[in-house]
Design a protein around this nucleic acid. Sequence first.
DNA 1: AATGTATGTAAAGATATCTTTACAATTTAT
DNA 2: ATAAATTGTAAAGATATCTTTACATACATT
Lengths: 73, 73
Amino acid sequence: MSVVNHIREIRKKKGITQTKMAEDLQITRQTINAIEKHKYNPSLELALKLVRYFNVPIEEVFYLDESKEEKSK
Amino acid sequence: MSVVNHIREIRKKKGITQTKMAEDLQITRQTINAIEKHKYNPSLELALKLVRYFNVPIEEVFYLDESKEEKSK
DNA sequence: AATGTATGTAAAGATATCTTTACAATTTAT
DNA sequence: ATAAATTGTAAAGATATCTTTACATACATT
């Protein structure tokens, strides 16, 4: 079960670059890129900062994808 | 800036033990204990599973505490 | 075609999250 | 009081998240 995120769509809709986001949020551009490319999930803290930054309800940005199973151990 | 969580209060209100929670969520009891004791934040995925488990809006369980600063590097 | 801007990626290293195993301390029930 | 249930904690190890540095690719403009 994995986490869906719509950061890229929301960022583009707001017309903001990864670089500006990174500066505003005081994180690296690579982190934003990795999250948008689904390399890994943001931490809970960063996720909360992201939704606050975009002023959107968290449910619209991050939610569990029921269909996707974890990689078996 | 840190993350507030009210997992313990919600768990107690529902009358569930850490052990039962851990079994239901397929994680270890130590993880739940650490989160309740604020040893660390849950991952975003686990946070989403927790709020789904309790069927509560995420904003009521996890939010940014504006007053608390990060430890300086 | 050349320049500038935005995005993609990689590797090494630091810290955070989570597990496993184990035991201690506290609370609840009998 | 003692037994059972619940919670607290610790250490070692695995994986995840994030940074720093650096370079590559893509896209748009001139």
